[in-house]
Design a protein around this nucleic acid. Structure first.
Lengths: 206, 206
DNA sequence: GTCTATATATCGATAGAC
DNA sequence: GTCTATCGATATATAGAC
């Protein structure tokens, strides 16, 4: 059909990355063999070592990229906030970028959320630190809202986990071809998160 | 210290179950070898086959038990509801049993929530059906509340996922020796779930 | 019901021809 | 940068002695 650029015929590092990401996310790191990855890019396992030093090196490469893109999406969303944003603005911004990333980049999200244990000890520690940094942003916004009296919660730490994790789970079930657009999805989660932190009393008895 | 019953000295099927559950939950099914399981109960890998026909048979045994206990906890909680419970009563009941199970039985929860893909195709289908049945209970309560006008949500399906999944995540971080009791934890999640479904308008403008 | 020994397959990774 | 061939380790599972 289409003429294919000469450079696209041979297996490149990027093709390997793409194949490995999909298989690591779907089947798990330890269930995916170098032969599996190689065959899905049309080469033999030994040839993978011309591009990556080891299987773990592929996982680490993918993990770093995934975290970088996750943090970049968050930073981009923050940069688009209005001047003097309210805590509600900040919460909606973070939840939207969080959910949108997990919906649009489900393989990267699954990698970051469930395959870190396969990393070497050194890489694992770095990954956990990046995840902690990401999660801290959400916690800070929630704490700010509590301080300013616009958010209320029994436990800020647990509520932060709950908001982050309900968004993370999106990568496991959301399909773009389903009934919801990513924009619909984000609006739903922003609404849920806002209600979870609402200061309005639910019971008016007594 | 204590005299040990004669029967408790040799490796039994239950000891194997306990060791396998912990390792499958912590390291994943495919990262756990029969040698790993055998050595942690003090026998050789070949001896495991006197108790289970295969590695997958161990996983299936554990998965079935975990689902049975999850459903039993739910049924027990439902049986203790007052007469003519409100949708709020039912929601609190389900969220409490859900969160308590995931906090108290974290290894079983991790197995059921992230190791199903390692099952044989037949067993996988049965497991997914049991999970769907469990999740449907939560959905029905939410739908009932919406019908009766005491719950409001943009999307009942997504809200059901969100409530279930924020509770499932508890198995990944909750530690009994931490600052929260299971009872504390359940109260927090009941509060969050109730707020997520609150019909009170958050914005009073216009 | 445990063990040793082994069958058979596959794993990550390397060496060296082309 | 690909390949074939192979190494050494390890995987699940089985056979048979005790």
């Amino acid at each position: 059909m289409h003429p294919v650029p000469e450079a696209a015929i041979s297996a490149t590092a990027d093709e390997i990355r793409e194949a490995a990401l999909e298989q690591f996310a779907r089947d798990g790191y330890s269930s995916t063999s170098m032969r599996d990855i190689a065959s899905s890019v049309g080469i033999k396992a030994a040839s993978l070592y011309n591009h990556f030093g080891s299987k773990e090196a592929i996982l680490w490469d993918l993990t770093l990229t995934a975290f970088e893109e996750l943090l970049r999406c968050r930073d981009l969303a923050i940069a688009n906030l209005p001047d003097n944003p309210t805590p509600q603005d900040r919460l909606a911004c973070l939840v939207t970028s969080h959910v949108a990333f997990h919906a649009r980049n489900s393989n990267q999200a699954l990698l970051v959320n469930s395959q870190l244990a396969a990393l070497s000890k050194t890489h694992y520690r770095k990954a956990v630190a990046m995840r902690a940094q990401y999660e801290a942003t959400m916690r800070e916004v929630i704490d700010e809202g509590i301080t300013k009296g616009v958010f209320t919660t029994i436990d800020a730490r647990v509520t932060t986990f709950a908001i982050l994790q309900m968004g993370m789970a999106v990568s496991g079930w959301f399909r773009p071809e389903g009934p919801l657009t990513v924009s619909d999805l984000c609006a739903i989660y922003v609404d849920l998160a806002a209600k979870m932190l609402t200061p309005l009393p639910l019971k008016r008895k007594e």
